[in-house]
Design a binder for these strands. Structure first.
Lengths: 348, 348
DNA sequence: CTGAAAGCGCTAACAT
DNA sequence: ATGTTAGCGCTTTCAG
């Protein structure tokens, strides 16, 4: 492993000083075209690779961005990261990935790790059990921070979310239009803002259609398949079970459909089902699953964009502006909520 | 934003030298317990955070590991990364993620970026169109490299793969046992070792069962849904179309199933289908899809483990040893290859 | 336009 | 057991 060439090597060979080489390579200072090209040529000849750590130490810019998500194995997050990584890497940054594994302890540790690595900015989504967000607030004072999807309420932090309220409203509107009347909501824990907003949108939409809000129809649980089954067992013990389910996650919806299949309930004829996230698998199910699309890839891209804005603003010394983007979700209507035999009924 | 405390600050306040502080904090050199605890206390008081970039520059250790995959949105890769990230981050490394987007140009650029960032090691999986692997070989001379899943033939590079040959054999064994006789293979491009091995396993297994190898039944294409449909169109123009498909990817298999649905072919009665990867969605399909499970999370973990081994070996000055791990895949049998009406036929 | 010099914060010989 | 010294490779005033 031969020694790497440094600017000193190339300066020596050219009979000039390291600082001249530095200027020639970075290009922004005044230097003669002659030396510049000589330096360029020699750099190529020696296969010179700048040592990022040295320049990072000197300038305080590491060229690193941190992304923290609960877990990268979830389609939603990996797709968002894909979007963000592409923009960021095209902008010349390297992206450090961390997983909180939905544990507050881990989350804090990972954020500390990112700060130690001197990332220039952070994109993050809260873990499920995270309630204390002081750590994020402190972090935001050090480097630009953009929260996405699972965010907390704050006026001073950049964020990207979809409008969960509208998402739920669109879903209910659609179900009502399809003729469903007793719509239940199955949701994630309401201390997460996104889930709370979905419930609020659901209630608002019911009211809008003059449908009663039945508290028995609102079931709060973790967003996974098994809980979906459990929720169904509960809901179908009610004297008057629902005729449609709005689930706050596609995995919950999956549990719902499985329960229905094993209990001779036809979806969508006997039971309409709408999920949330438009996960890859929803389109492949039988019946295919109607779902609220969260534009995960765009979400990652927008988060990256906001961060890059902050970064360039900081570089120019401009004051930072808090941007909170709200994407409007799209309802992807598929078989699970579209009973062909039933005539659409207009809202009252 | 107040200035960060450095070891100099804490040395000054304690009336000792920076090097003493450094020793006290790193703990490995001989220093009195007294000063050590004094230093610790002062560090806490000043909220001292070591500057990783400085120590990186000094020691040549960045604490960074690079992971390069074709795309993070694919379940297989994101799950593998999840496994690797957890081990690596527990070992104190930060993980930089890069995507080659299956473009050789990108791949090279990303690897250069990783080298510039002075990563201490790299875990990578080849892009689809990558034929020239010189770049990897050069890289392996600089830092420990572990290839996984999509690897190239080399005796000097650590790798983790599943035994694709056995995977294909298990799939064919199963299909034959279920009574299928005209089994086609639909695969990724054979210059990728994994895909080549699957084809070889397929051929071997057919021979083992005294079934003819029909070259018309071997279709090479990119592993995505649309190609699966195209492949089916080709295969079903043959005078004698296959009665089962072994697809080298679940996405291909998905295309196969979709084609079958739209052409009144019943799966599994008229057509048996087996995929590769055991992607999340396969279990939710109707019919659910039989697939060769590649243990993606374990794969990431093993890759990380091998890399950590190399790293600790390098640190101790031991010579590096090339480890090539081969995981044995598992066939997950589901509905798409299990015709209930058909009596299992024993292999000849 | 280019050179000299002073560090960024930390570590590792070497000396005391 | 602690202090001294000398950089890692690069950038950036400040002179010339």
């Amino acid at each position: 492993m031969k020694k790497k060439a440094t600017i000193v090597d190339i300066a020596l060979r050219l009979g000039i000083t390291p600082s001249a080489v530095s200027k020639a390579l970075s290009g922004n200072t005044r230097i003669s075209d002659e030396t510049r090209s000589a330096v360029r040529a020699m750099a190529k000849e020696l296969d010179y690779q700048p040592n990022i750590m040295a320049s990072a130490l000197r300038t305080g810019k590491s060229g690193l961005i941190g992304i923290l998500v609960p877990g990268i194995q979830y389609g939603f997050f990996s797709t968002a990261i894909k979007g963000a990584e592409e923009l960021l890497s095209d902008a010349g940054y390297n992206v450090i990935i961390c997983q909180s594994r939905d544990s507050a302890r881990h989350e804090k540790k990972q954020l500390e790790g990112l700060m130690r690595a001197k990332v220039e900015g952070v994109i993050a989504s809260l873990g499920m059990e995270t309630i204390d967000v002081e750590f994020y607030k402190a972090l935001a004072k050090e480097v630009p921070l953009v929260m996405f999807d699972r965010v907390f309420e704050s006026e001073s932090i950049c964020s990207v979310v979809i409008d969960d309220f509208i998402g739920a409203v669109k879903a209910v509107d659609h179900l009502v239009e399809m003729g469903y009347q007793r719509i239940a909501h199955m949701g994630g824990h309401s201390h997460i803002l996104a889930f709370d907003r979905r419930i609020r949108g659901y209630k608002y939409a019911l009211a809008k259609h003059n449908l009663p809000v039945n508290e028995d129809y609102i079931y709060e649980c973790s967003p996974n398949k098994d809980e979906g089954v459990v929720a169904m067992e509960r809901l179908f013990q009610l004297p008057e079970p629902p005729d449609a389910i709005l689930a706050a996650s596609d995995f919950l919806a999956l549990g719902v459909v499985n329960y229905a299949k094993s209990h001779h309930l036809n979806v969508p004829e006997d039971l309409g089902v709408v999920g949330f996230s438009n996960e890859e698998f929803t389109r492949h199910l039988t019946p295919s699953l109607t779902s609220v699309d969260q534009f995960s890839e765009s979400m990652g891209e927008v988060a990256a964009q906001l961060l890059l804005d902050q970064l360039s603003r900081a570089r120019k010394g401009s004051s930072m502006v808090v941007q909170q983007r709200v994407l409007v979700p799209r309802l992807v209507i598929r078989e699970s909520s579209f009973p062909k035999k039933r005539e659409p009924v207009l809202a009252a």
